[in-house]
Computed example of a mutant assay.
Amino acid sequence: MSIAELSPLTLFVIVSTITPGGATTLATASGARFGYRRSLPFICGIALGLASMAAGAATGLGGVILAFPSLQLAMKLIGTLYLLWLAWKMTRSGPPHLHSNIARPTGFFGAVWLVWHNPKGWAVAMGAAASFASLAAEPSHFALTLGCSFGFAAILSLSLWCVAGLILARLLRTDAQWHAFNAVLGALLAISIIPMWFE
């Protein structure tokens, strides 16, 4: 597989992972509240979840999900409720208390769970699998290529969003600024749910 053959896939994966959405909003909020190091389990969980979804789509798992509309609807409802709960919590939060044990970032397994219940993520993974299937003759090789591409791109893009949140956190000085910032992030997270219901 040459660089020229991989270039369109690379561009697709970068654009898919770096554009604003639920995961990028949560990465920004996590960076602002907990810093980059404490957000790493979340970033790695999202990356592994997305990588495994892409690999699963490349091997045909996405087709199984598409074949059962009731499973799609259940995934969509569970994902929506979870994201709305996170948005509500985010909107109601004030300034971070980084030395407190009460507030914790979303962990590794929570992030994997979140991605696997996101129909938009499945749509992107299946779109990539359908569009770039000719890149590899063997399904296992294609699954590895697609999974690694999405995993690495997710780590890089979510790291950028997390660092952006960390930088923004240094600019926020008052409780009112923190409440406004969290309200905006909560609203963006809630809005990011809308496209999954109109695909």
Rank of each mutant, 00 (worst) to 15 (best):
A4V: 11
A4C: 02
S7G: 11
P8D: 07
T10K: 08
T10C: 15
T10G: 10
F12G: 07
V13M: 05
I14F: 15
T17P: 07
I18K: 03
P20C: 03
G22E: 01
T24H: 03
T25K: 03
A27S: 10
G31I: 06
G35C: 08
S39Q: 00
F42G: 03
A47C: 04
G49M: 02
A54F: 02
A54E: 05
G56E: 05
G63P: 02
V64L: 15
I65Y: 01
L66H: 14
A67K: 08
F68Q: 14
P69L: 09
Q72S: 11
Q72H: 08
A74H: 11
M75A: 05
K76W: 02
I78P: 07
L81W: 10
L83K: 06
L83M: 14
K89M: 13
T91G: 14
R92P: 09
S93P: 07
S93M: 09
G94R: 11
P95C: 10
H97P: 02
L98I: 14
L98F: 08
L98H: 10
S100G: 13
R104M: 11
R104L: 13
R104Y: 06
R104I: 11
G107Q: 06
G107A: 09
V112G: 09
W113R: 10
W116A: 10
H117S: 12
N118T: 02
G121K: 02
A123N: 05
A125S: 12
G127C: 09
A130L: 12
A130N: 12
S131N: 15
A136G: 05
A136T: 06
A137P: 05
A137D: 15
A137T: 11
A137E: 14
S140Y: 13
H141G: 10
A143P: 04
L146T: 03
L146M: 15
G147Y: 07
C148Q: 10
F150A: 07
G151P: 00
G151I: 06
A154R: 03
I155E: 02
S157A: 13
L158F: 06
L158Q: 01
S159L: 01
S159H: 00
C162S: 12
L166C: 12
L166H: 14
I167M: 14
L168P: 04
R170A: 15
L171P: 01
D175I: 09
A176Y: 05
H179A: 11
N182V: 07
A183Q: 11
V184E: 01
A187H: 05
L189G: 01
S192E: 06
F198M: 13
E199I: 15
